[in-house]
Simulated assay, not measured.
Amino acid sequence: MSSPMRDSVLLIDDEVLVRRGFRHALEEAGDIAVVGEACHATDGLRLAQRHRPRVAITADVTALAPLRSCVTGGVIALAVDGNDEQLHRVLTDGARGFLLKRASHEELLAAVRAVARGHAYLCAEVTGRLLDRFEILPPPEEVDRGLGLLSERERQVLARMARGRSNDEIARELYLTCATVKSHVSHILAKLGQPNRMHAALFAQRLGLLSRTG
């Protein structure tokens, strides 16, 4: 029986320790394979053209636009901080994800899995700032009331939505049917007063549900 296909990732960063830490976290996950590493954009593009990875993670913003044509999923931009000007630039250049170099391994894996499946992913710090600015979150008393209405299973589903999991993946992880997962998602949106799946996922990231739910 053949082994399941793993998402392929290319790392581009001039800091060896960052690449080493990311590689370790990604390969330990089991469903992700690092197909190459590079210090600079030139070498990174060459490797991307050779391996055609699902996802490329780069700290070199000059590589964003050319990398887009070499990956089958998307590109995640890395940064030391998440200022608005930098975020605007990388998103304009076609990044599908944005992470800080100090991102936790959990957040790194969530970003790669989300982008590999065609979704966008912004790190929790940036997401929180955007949510505050556009007032996507309801008042604190409504947040507490909404979370209190969720069952333990619904919290588990919501946390996986925030990690970029599809309904099929959530069903496999929680040993549920896809129909049951869809039902949970509908109940979650209604209880939290969120208009769609993306808003609910951002809601969960903002509240730190990823670190509190298995």
Rank of each mutant, 00 (worst) to 15 (best):
L150D: 11
V115N: 00
E15I: 07
V16H: 06
G73S: 12
A65D: 09
P139E: 15
R23K: 11
G128I: 03
A56Y: 02
L47W: 04
G148S: 13
S151L: 08
L210Y: 00
T62N: 07
H51G: 04
L67D: 00
L131S: 04
H105I: 07
S3N: 13
P66S: 00
R163Y: 02
E28M: 10
E125H: 12
V34E: 11
D168Y: 11
R117D: 08
P66M: 05
T42H: 12
G44M: 07
T72Q: 05
A171Y: 03
G208Q: 10
S8P: 14
L67Y: 02
H119K: 15
S151P: 03
S2E: 13
G74V: 10
V16D: 10
A25K: 14
L47Y: 04
P195C: 05
H199F: 08
V157C: 04
P4D: 08
V157D: 00
R172P: 07
R153P: 06
S104H: 12
L210F: 04
C178M: 12
S2T: 13
H119S: 13
R129E: 09
A41T: 02
E173P: 05
P66V: 03
V157E: 09
A114Y: 02
S186L: 03
H187S: 14
R163M: 12
V185F: 14
H187E: 14
A33T: 05
L122Y: 09
R23Y: 05
S211T: 02
R212F: 05
V126C: 01
V75L: 02
P4H: 13
V71K: 01
V185I: 13
L100F: 07
V181W: 05
D81Q: 07
A114M: 12
A190D: 14
M198W: 08
G193C: 07
H105L: 10
A190N: 06
E15N: 15
V55C: 03
G97M: 00
L100R: 07
N196A: 13
V9M: 13
D14A: 12
